Computed example of a mutant assay.
Amino acid sequence: MIHETHPEILKRLRRAHGHLASIIRMLEEQRRCLEIAQQLQAVVNAVDNAKTTLIHDHIDHCLEQAIGPVPQDRRASLQEFKEITKYL
């Protein structure tokens, strides 16, 4: 099933793919470690953001499809669950 966030996730992963290709070239060109580390961090951030977006999308759509609509008075617990996923 394709969700509305999938294009955003693909964009983030393509960005990470581009950064990774740059890192490979940088290593082959024997560039400075600081530059390489910065690019590696960009890859990690892009993948982490894609993962978080995917998990939140799953909570928002797939979880509610499985258990049914979440009443308004229980939405705070669901939001807290989404917040805690950033520590995965």
Rank of each mutant, 00 (worst) to 15 (best):
M1H: 14
I2K: 12
I2N: 11
I2S: 13
I2Q: 13
H3V: 01
H3N: 13
H3W: 00
E4I: 05
T5C: 07
H6L: 05
H6N: 13
P7K: 03
P7N: 05
P7A: 07
E8S: 08
I9L: 01
I9R: 04
L10K: 03
R12N: 06
R12M: 04
L13W: 00
R14H: 14
R14V: 08
R14S: 07
R14Y: 08
R15T: 14
A16R: 06
A16M: 04
H17A: 08
H17G: 12
G18P: 04
L20F: 04
L20V: 04
L20N: 00
L20I: 00
L20W: 03
A21D: 08
S22V: 00
S22K: 04
S22T: 07
I23Y: 03
I23V: 12
I23D: 04
I24G: 12
R25A: 10
R25M: 10
R25N: 08
M26A: 14
M26G: 13
E28F: 09
E28I: 04
E29P: 01
Q30E: 11
R31W: 01
R31S: 13
R32P: 01
R32Y: 00
C33H: 15
L34G: 15
L34W: 06
E35Q: 14
E35F: 02
I36M: 10
A37E: 12
Q38I: 11
Q38T: 15
Q39V: 06
L40C: 15
L40S: 14
Q41N: 15
A42T: 15
A42N: 05
V43M: 07
V43H: 05
N45D: 15
A46G: 08
V47A: 02
V47W: 05
D48R: 02
N49R: 03
N49E: 15
N49C: 13
A50K: 00
K51F: 02
T52R: 02
T53V: 06
L54V: 02
L54E: 09
I55S: 05
H56Q: 12
H56T: 10
D57F: 01
D57Y: 05
D57H: 01
H58N: 03
H58I: 02
I59E: 03
I59Y: 03
I59C: 05
D60W: 06
D60Q: 12
D60T: 11
D60E: 12
H61K: 12
C62D: 15
C62S: 14
E64L: 09
E64F: 01
Q65W: 00
A66M: 09
A66S: 11
I67A: 03
P69N: 14
V70Y: 02
Q72C: 09
D73R: 07
D73C: 00
D73I: 08
R74G: 13
R75G: 09
R75A: 11
A76I: 01
S77P: 03
Q79W: 00
Q79M: 13
Q79F: 01
F81M: 11
F81P: 08
K82H: 06
E83G: 14
E83C: 11
I84R: 12
I84P: 06
I84W: 12
T85G: 03
T85L: 02
T85S: 05
Y87E: 10
Y87C: 11
Y87Q: 11
L88P: 02
L88S: 10
L88N: 11
L88G: 09
